[in-house]
């Protein structure tokens, strides 16, 4: 039944930088296009407290990941070193409800690209 009480959320306290603030800080206000960046996330989170995501790009030097609907949207920043065999990484994140997860990559040529994916976080229960 829809009897679960939602506990995965991070309660909102104080004023935090918004996702857009964090993007502006990362890009220095540069234009963000679309292109060499892929973000893979599940349609529905099995557990809002541990949602698997994967970012990948052919030429990213750095990738910023944000959970736009969390009270504090910061998630992680990946920097790829000389011995990274690919500009790709996976991790698990907390989502305080259904929202867009956004990745912004700084490519080697200095340009910025964006990818996003909506993840549904549900109360759950019931079944056939």
């Amino acid at each position: 039944g829809a009897s679960a009480i939602f506990v995965a959320g991070l309660p909102k306290i104080g004023a935090a930088a918004t996702g857009d603030d964090l993007i502006a800080e990362f890009t220095g206000g540069a234009e963000v296009g679309e292109g060499d960046l892929k973000l893979v996330a599940p349609e529905i989170a099995e557990n809002g407290n541990t949602v698997p995501i994967e970012v990948s790009s052919g030429s990213a030097a750095e990738i910023l990941v944000l959970a736009m609907g969390n009270p504090t949207p910061s998630v992680a920043t990946f920097k790829f070193g000389k011995l990274a065999a690919s500009r790709a990484a996976s991790t698990r994140i907390r989502l305080a409800g259904t929202q867009d997860v956004v990745a912004i990559a700084k490519l080697e040529d200095g340009s910025f690209v964006k990818a996003s994916s909506t993840v549904k976080v549900t109360i759950g229960g019931c079944g056939g």
Binding site: G1, S3, A4, I5, V7, G124, G125, C126
Partner: peptide, 10 residues
């Protein structure tokens, strides 16, 4: 009142 909660410790 309900039943079949997916929460632990119900």
């Amino acid at each position: 009142a309900g039943w079949a909660s997916v929460n632990e410790d119900t």
